[in-house]
Structure formats: C-alpha cells, structure tokens
C-alpha cells in the first residue's frame, strides 16, 4: 500500500502532528509532554452548560 492509498486520517498521523485543543485544558500538558505542538482555546459551553439559560440567552441575542 502506497502512502497515497492509506486512509486520510492515517496520512495525517504519519506526518508531524500539531493540535488545537478546545475546552478542557488537561489534555494540553499530556500533548506537550510528548513534544506535540498544541494551541489551547479557552472555551466553555454557553452559560456553563445550563440548557435553560443558554436557550434564554439565544433568544436575547447572544
């Protein structure tokens, strides 16, 4: 099987991996410990995950 015949996800992992980590910051340290480049995005679900408040905010235009 040539490189081009491999599924796309395998091609990705065959090259140097760089990661964008969204949300939980705990993964960042593990990746950095493996010398993998990682950019952390500080993200939380709207209203801390409270669905009623999130729905209200959506109606109020957030």
């Amino acid at each position: 099987m040539t490189e081009q015949d491999r599924p796309q996800y395998q091609q990705l992992l065959a090259r140097k991996v760089e990661v964008v980590n969204v949300g939980l910051e705990g993964f960042v340290k593990d990746l950095r410990d493996c010398d993998i480049g990682v950019v952390h995005v500080d993200w939380k679900p709207s209203a801390g995950g409270d669905p009623q408040m999130a729905a209200l905010l959506a109606k109020l235009g957030v």
Partner: peptide, 8 residues
C-alpha cells in the same frame, strides 16, 4: 449581562 452569563 448577556456576555457575562454566556461566557461565565
């Protein structure tokens, strides 16, 4: 207040 509650 919308941005405060949305973002925490």
């Amino acid at each position: 207040i919308r941005l405060v509650v949305d973002s925490g």
